[in-house]
Amino acid sequence: MARTWQPDFERLVDEHQSMVFSLAWRMTGDRGLAEEIAQDVFLELDMHLDHLESPAHTLFWLRRVAMSRSADALRRRRVRGVDLWVEIDDHHGAPPEETTSPLGTRLEQLLTTLPEPQRAALTLRYQEDLTPEEIATVLDSPLATVKSHLQRGLKLLRAKAQSHLKEYIRRA
């Protein structure tokens, strides 16, 4: 059966590079590393272009590979014994024109201090607006596990935010 969808690589890069880059950055907390991961993900996309059936399939594939490559990078970093928190202070700063509010930057930093599975679940939930079922498919993880990571991650992140962000407290 002839394929009706003919993907254009450059257009896919235009459409999805921010998504891939953001996922990698939120997972690793390292801007430079996120760029490398994004580059690798799109190189892999080029090699698998013939196997992708639709725009939705491509989006799913990119999310999955971006998360997988980010996890690999974090694992290599752990093997090297690099302190992620120190890395955040050194590398998390974006060029001035790209910074969000101080609150937003702080939340991003706190996100990278969460355990990796919780970080992954929260990133896919609040950056990509995926449902728990969709997150489970992307991460190839049981739904109950994903829900647990979301619940615990949210609770932990909120607790960290409350203790670190004086400006976040809305009630005296």
Binding site: S18, F21, Q39, E98, S101, L122
Partner: peptide
Amino acid sequence: ERELRQNLARRPAPPSLKRRI
């Protein structure tokens, strides 16, 4: 959660990323 969703919006990719890819 609302705050989180707002602050975890996608970051724009660096301008040079596409060229490098």
